[in-house]
Nucleic acid binder design. Structure first.
Lengths: 194, 194, 194, 194
DNA sequence: GATGAATGAGACTTCATTCAT
DNA sequence: AATGAATGAAGTCTCATTCAT
C-alpha cells in the first residue's frame, strides 16, 4: 500500500475511533463517518469491505498501538514489584489519556464483535497474538515473588481493577490523581505478590 | 398490576434478557422479541413505552435481583476476611450461573444507557440507591483490617478482577472451578486488606 | 333506542367532536376517545360500525343541529334585507360560539369524507337534504329584491364570506366584535341584493 | 442546487400534490408517493427531512406559484372595479384549472399545518410576506370607491365567495361557465364597493 | 480512484379493530 | 352489554451498501 493510501486509511480509522467511542457502533452512520473524515461514503468501501470489517480492523489497530505503547516502558533492571507497579501505572495513564481507545475497546469486548474475537483467540491457543504483551511476558514465566496461579487469574487480579476504575473515570465519576493511581497499582501488586 | 399482567411482563423481560444478551440491543428487533415471547409486537408496547424503556426496566430488574441474591448471603458473625471472601465467591457463582444477566449488565454499562445511569447515581450521591449492597455496606464504614482508601479504589480492587475474569469465563475462555474461584477471591482480599 | 343508549351514543359523539376538532380525525385515536368519554374502546363499536361511520354520523348530528338552530330564528314579518342580515348574524354568532362544530365541519368538507358526502348530495339532486335550511328556503323562491342568480352563486355570495372570516377568527387572527359582524352581514347583503 | 436535483425535487412535489389532493395527507403513504414518483422511498428523504417538511415545502411552492400567476395579470390603468373583477375572474379560472392546488390548499389550511402557518403570518404582521399579493396591495391602501372596512372583512367579502363556490365546483356540483364566474365576481364587487 | 445520489430492506412504533371474559 | 388486552397490518424513517459518473 502506498503511503498515501495508508494516510487515507488511517484518517478513516482515526475518525471512526472518535465516532464509535462517542456514539457507539450503532449510532455512528457511515455517512457521518465519511463527512467527518472529509471523504465520500463510497471511498470507505475501497479500504474496508463493510462496516464490520472496519470495526475489526480498528480493533486490531487500537490493540496493537496499546501493546506497543506499554511494552516500550518496561525496564528489566528493577525489581519485579517496581516493574509491575510501573507497568500498571503506565497502563492507567495511557488509557486515561486515550479515552476514545478505552471506550472503544470496552464497547468492542462487550459486543458480538468482541465475543467472536475472543473465541478466535481461544482457538489460536492465545499466545501467538498477545505474546508481546507485558502481561503475557510477565505472567508467562514463573516468578519467585508472584503467586503461582493460572495466567487468567493473575490477569484478572492485575488488570481487572484498572479497567474497573477507568470505566468510572471515563464516565466522569472519579478524578484520577497521582496518589489514587499509585494506591491502585500497589493494590494490584498486593493481590498477586506472594 | 394483576399477577397475570406481571406474568406477561416478566415473560417479555425474560425473553428480552436472552435476546439482548445474545445479540446485543441493536441486533435484537422488537419483532423477534415478540415472536420469541410468543406475543404480538403491539403487546410489548402495552407494557413498555418503547425499546429504551424496556431496556432500562430490564436493567432495574436484573440489578435488583442481583443485589437481593447477594445480600441474602452475608453472615455478620464471621471475620471480615471471611465475609469478604464469601461475598466475592457468591458473586462469581451467581454471575457464572446467570451469564445472560452478566452479559446484559456489561453491555448496558458500556452503552449510552449505562453511562446515563451512572451519571444519575453520581448525582444521587449514591447511598440512597445501593445502600443495601454489600459493597457499599462493606466499604462505606471504616474497617480495621481494610486499607483506608477511597471507596472507588476499594471497589475497583475488590470487584474489578471478578468482572474481568467473568468476561473470559462467559466467552468460554476459562472454566471456573472451585479452586480458581477461591484463589481469585483471596487475591481480591489481599489487594484491600491492611 | 332506549334513552340510556341515546345518552351513551351522544356522549361518544360529543367527545368525538371535541377530539376531532382539536386534533384532526387522524390524530384522535379511538383509544383516547374512549378514555375521554370514560368508556371502553369496545363499547364505541357497539354504537358505530367503525371510525368512518362515527365520523359520518357525527357530521349528520352537527349539520342537523346547526340547521335547526338557524331556522328557529327566522321572522317572516320583517323585510327581506332584515331577515337576511339577521340570519347571517345569527350564523356567525352560532359558529363563533361553537368553534368545535365549525372546525369539524371545515375539516369534514375538506377530506375524502366530505367530498364523498357532496357527491352523494349531488346524486340526490340535493333538495331533499337541505330543503329545510334557511338558505334553501330563502334562495329557493324568487324574491323581488334579490338578484336573479343561480342558487349556487347566491349561496357563495351569502355564506362564503362567513366561513372565510370564521376561519381566521377560529385561528385567533381576528376578534369578532359586533360592528365587524354587522359590516360583514351587510356586505353579504350588498352582494346579493338587486 | 443543480437543475437535475431541482427536477427530481419537483417531480416529488408534483407527485405529492396529486396524491395529497386526492387522498389527503394521511391516506397518502410515503411508499405510494415513492412508487408513483418512480423513485425509492429513501430518495424522498434526501430532499425533505420528513413528511411534514414535504408538506410545508409543497405549500410554499403552490402558494408562490399562485401569487405569481395572479399578480401577473393586474393592469393598473383600468378602473378599480374592472381591476377587481378581472382579478377575481382570474383567480377563479386559475383555481378551476388547478384543482389539485385548490384542494391541497384547502386541506392545508384546515389542518394543524395551516393553522400553524396562519399564526406565523399573524406574528409577522403579515405585510412582509404577502405584500406582493393583489389582495394586500388592493386592500392595503385606501381606495375612494371601496368601503372603509378592516382588511379582514374586505378579504372575506372579496374571496370568501370564490373559495366557497370552488369547493362545490371541485366536487363536481357546479359547472363554472363564463356568465356564472362573471356574476360571482360582480357580486363580490358589490359587497365591497361604496 | 473517488464521489455521493439512489436504493430498499428492515427497524421502531401506532392504532383501528376484535374477542374472550 | 361492556370491557380492555391483544393483535398485526401499515406507516414513517434510517442507513449500510451500490454504482454510474
Amino acid at each position: 500500500m502506498t503511503p498515501e493510501k495508508q494516510d487515507k486509511r488511517n484518517n478513516i480509522l482515526r475518525t471512526a475511533l472518535e465516532l464509535f467511542s462517542e456514539h457507539g457502533f450503532h449510532d455512528a452512520p457511515m455517512a457521518q463517518l465519511a463527512k467527518q473524515a472529509d471523504i465520500a461514503v463510497g471511498t470507505i468501501y475501497r479500504y474496508f469491505k463493510d462496516k464490520d470489517e472496519l470495526i475489526h480492523e480498528l480493533y486490531k489497530e487500537v490493540d496493537d498501538t496499546l501493546q506497543r505503547a506499554l511494552v516500550r516502558e518496561v525496564d528489566p533492571t528493577i525489581s519485579t514489584r517496581q516493574q509491575f507497579v510501573h507497568f500498571v501505572t503506565n497502563l492507567i495513564h495511557y488509557l486515561k489519556d486515550h479515552p476514545h481507545e478505552f471506550k472503544f475497546l470496552e464497547q468492542y469486548y462487550n459486543s458480538p464483535f468482541g465475543i467472536e474475537k475472543k473465541r478466535e483467540k481461544l482457538h489460536m491457543s492465545g499466545p501467538s497474538d498477545r505474546k508481546s504483551t507485558f502481561g503475557h511476558f510477565f505472567f508467562g514465566t514463573t516468578k519467585d515473588d508472584i503467586k503461582p496461579l493460572s495466567g487468567h487469574v493473575l490477569h484478572a487480579l492485575a488488570f481487572g481493577p484498572v479497567t474497573f476504575l477507568l470505566r468510572d473515570a471515563t464516565a466522569g465519576l472519579v478524578k484520577l490523581d497521582e496518589s489514587l493511581v499509585k494506591t491502585l497499582a500497589e493494590g494490584c501488586w498486593d493481590a498477586i505478590k506472594k
